[in-house]
Simulated scan of single mutants.
Amino acid sequence: MADKKSGIDQALIRDLANILKDTDLTEIEVEQEDLRIRVSRTIPAAPAPTYYAPAPAAAAPAAAPVAAVAEAAAPAARNNKNAVTAPMVGTAYLSPAPGARPFIEVGATVKEGQTILIIEAMKTMNQIPAPRSGKITEILVQDASPVEYGEPLLVIE
């Protein structure tokens, strides 16, 4: 067994460890003839982000009817089988760049696979394609507004 230990190529192990570090991989394995080397590392977890809820605002009498209308519209859209829902949590953008023309407008016809909006998640811009062809009858989100997973974004009839 001492012979096998002295035959291990320490330079190879160092090279594999450097590859892990350079590529942000967590594990690498190499096998040559009867020698198999596996190098792995654990990456320290980033601290969980802290979220603070905004302080409750004093309810103004005029705000109640608006909230009631929004709450009534949301369930109707959520139950609509033609609603396109958010595939992830993030910030929805209706145009490719600030000030640019929006991807879609109410009344526009879209084709399956056409980009209908962008959701930014973790500083990555994710193009959201139309799941089917049809006519845009409602856009349920505002530009640069936060969206939750499964939230209705728009309706394609």
Rank of each mutant, 00 (worst) to 15 (best):
G7A: 15
Q10R: 15
A11C: 06
D15G: 05
A17S: 09
A17K: 13
A17D: 05
N18E: 06
K21Q: 02
D24L: 10
T26I: 08
I28M: 08
I28G: 00
Q32H: 06
D34W: 12
I37H: 09
S40P: 00
R41K: 11
I43Q: 04
P44R: 14
P47W: 08
Y52V: 06
P54I: 09
A57I: 13
A57R: 15
P61L: 14
A62H: 05
A62G: 00
A62Q: 11
V66I: 12
A68S: 12
A73L: 13
A74C: 06
P75A: 12
P75R: 15
A76K: 15
A76H: 07
N79I: 05
A83Q: 09
T85D: 01
A86R: 13
M88S: 04
G90N: 11
T91M: 10
A92N: 09
Y93E: 02
Y93C: 03
L94V: 06
L94T: 03
S95C: 03
A97R: 12
P98S: 12
G99W: 12
G99E: 02
A100N: 03
A100V: 07
E105I: 09
E105H: 09
V106Q: 07
G107Q: 04
A108W: 11
Q114M: 04
T115S: 03
I116Q: 04
I118L: 05
E120G: 01
E120Q: 11
K123D: 04
K123M: 11
K123G: 02
N126W: 08
N126R: 14
I128R: 01
I128A: 01
P129S: 01
A130Q: 07
P131N: 11
P131C: 03
P131G: 04
R132Q: 02
G134E: 01
I136E: 03
I136H: 03
T137P: 00
S145R: 15
Y149N: 12
L153V: 06
I156S: 00
